[in-house]
Simulated scan of single mutants.
Amino acid sequence: MNHAIFVVKVIEKPVHLIYKECQSMEIKVKFPAPRQKDSRNELTLLLWGDYKGDFIKYYKTQDYLIIEGTLTSKGYANEENEIKIIVKKLYPFLLI
């Protein structure tokens, strides 16, 4: 199973995608602090349904989020892998 939970920081504005009747949103995020200098720390979130409206209404660039979702990977051994997360749940993360 590719179920995962992450704390991420939003680094770019969302991009709206429309495919036939389905609408989704892609958002670039990264881990707050990479462990190693050469490690990948950026991911793309895919939001569907009510989460799109909630994200636009409540969140902005530079916010921290707790996301729960399914990991997907696209790529081959010789090419750079593109990692996306299909978001199942989305929570704000407050730093005090």
Rank of each mutant, 00 (worst) to 15 (best):
A77C: 08
D38Y: 04
V87R: 00
I66M: 14
E12Q: 14
D50A: 15
H3T: 07
T44A: 02
S39V: 03
F6K: 11
L65F: 02
V29Y: 14
I85L: 13
I11Q: 06
V15A: 09
K9D: 02
R40D: 06
G53D: 15
N78G: 03
Y19V: 14
K13H: 06
I96R: 08
F93N: 01
T61L: 03
K37D: 04
I86L: 14
C22D: 10
K88M: 06
A77P: 05
G49Q: 05
C22Q: 08
F55P: 01
H16V: 13
Y91N: 05
C22I: 10
S73F: 05
K89P: 00
A4Y: 02
R40T: 01
E26F: 01
M25N: 04
L46S: 11
V8T: 00
L65C: 07
S24P: 05
A33N: 12
K52L: 13
I11E: 12
T44I: 15
S39M: 07
E12H: 13
Q62K: 13
I83N: 04
S24V: 01
N81P: 11
Y58P: 00
E79F: 14
I56W: 14
I11C: 10
K52H: 04
H3V: 05
V8P: 01
L17G: 02
S39T: 05
T44K: 02
E42V: 04
L47I: 02
I86W: 13
Y76F: 15
G75E: 06
N2K: 10
L47A: 01
F31S: 02
P34H: 10
Q36E: 15
L71K: 10
I86D: 07
K20Y: 06
N2H: 09
T44S: 09
A33D: 09
H16E: 15
Y58R: 07
I83Y: 10
L47Y: 00
D38S: 11
T70W: 05
E80S: 11
L90C: 14
Y59E: 00
G75I: 05
T72N: 13
I56R: 15
W48M: 12
I11P: 10
I83E: 00
M25R: 04
V15C: 08
G69I: 14
L90I: 15
S73D: 00
N78Q: 11
I67M: 02
L46C: 07
D38E: 12
